[in-house]
Structures are given as C-alpha cells and as structure tokens.
C-alpha cells in the first residue's frame, strides 16, 4: 500500500490541475508552496505514523499547535476535511530521500486530545509537552504530560487566541521607602 500510495502522489505531481482529491499514505494531500501536506484524521494518526516510520520518515522534526479561533477561514484544507479550532502540525523528515512531509491534524475544541507519538518518535516528548502547555491539547499515552515552559501552577494556556497576551498586572504592597 505504501509504494502504491507513494506512486500515486508522485504521479499526481505532473497533473496538479486534476480536480480529483489527491491522497498519500491514505490521507488527503495538499500542497502549500511546493511543500507536501497531509490531512489525516485523528483516528488515522497512530497508524499513519507507523506507515511513515516504515517508509523512512525516521524523525519528527517539529510538532506544534495552532489555534484557529479568530482566523477568517483556511483555504488550504481539502474538501473532505472539516476545519476544527485547533490544529496539531507535525513535520517529518526522511533523511534518505531528503524529503519532508507535514501533517495537519484537526483537533476539536471540546475534545482537545490526540494520541501521543512518543512510542515511535521519542523525540516528541518535549514538543508534546510544549503543545500541551501552550494550547491545552492533551496527548494520550504521554508518560509525563506536565507544563514545560510555564510555572507549574499557571492558569490557562498562553498561546490560545482567547488568552490575554498582555502583561499580568503586578501590584506593590507595603514597599517601604528604604532608599
């Protein structure tokens, strides 16, 4: 299946104008400025990672989140994928073929969770913790899902669009004039 799908993807490159939805590794494929982007569903994700790992994508180079709460509308999604508030963006790299692949996973706001990639890609440990810290997306199966950048008792997730970016007001109390 892997080889077929890869050939499909390669074959479609020549006829990018065809309206039929492209697929690669069983997930809808789009192109963003020449970069390959896959849009798997959340359920597909663990299996897809296994397929990709076997296909030579040995490193997850980056994993991060995006909060599309106030975005006026995404044009990059294929028709079969329903937009949700959060996206988890995963960048994989195939060193042997010098190829990159990006996964964009739609995560609904009322159930912000995703399977952890840590079994196959132990390097996602810190990145998933950061995404949890900044967006509140939980990763099932992560052994140590705690805040990584913010203090432990911090309320809220700072990179969410409904989180106030401004400073936290600090008040002085009883500072004696000692100078």
């Amino acid at each position: 299946m892997t080889d077929e799908a890869a050939q499909d993807g390669a074959g479609a490159e020549g006829s990018a104008a065809t309206p039929a939805p492209e697929e690669l590794f069983g997930a809808p494929l789009t192109r963003s400025g020449g970069q390959l982007v896959l849009h798997p569903s959340r359920e597909q994700y663990p299996l897809l990672l296994r397929t990709l790992h076997e296909a030579g994508y040995l490193s997850i180079i980056d994993l991060t989140g995006v909060d599309y709460l106030t975005h006026p509308g995404r044009s990059g999604l294929p028709a079969s994928v329903a937009p949700e508030r959060f996206e988890v963006v995963v960048n994989l790299i195939n060193h042997r073929e010098r190829a990159r692949l990006r996964l964009r996973l739609q995560i609904p706001a009322d159930d912000a969770r995703l399977a952890s990639a840590i079994d196959l890609y132990p390097g996602t440990e810190a990145m998933e913790r950061e995404t949890f810290d900044m967006f509140g997306i939980e990763f099932d199966g992560h052994p140590d899902l705690t805040r990584i950048l913010m203090p432990e008792d911090w309320p809220g997730h700072p990179l969410r669009k409904d989180y106030d970016p401004g400073r936290i007001p600090v008040q002085f109390k009883g500072a004696p004039a000692n100078r």
Binding site: S32, G33, D62, R74, V89, N91, R100, R102
Partner: peptide, 8 residues
C-alpha cells in the same frame, strides 16, 4: 497572502 509554510 493567506496560507502556511515551514522553512528550515
């Protein structure tokens, strides 16, 4: 323009 990109 609207869109997304990753460059390294």
């Amino acid at each position: 323009p609207e869109g997304e990109a990753y460059v390294s």
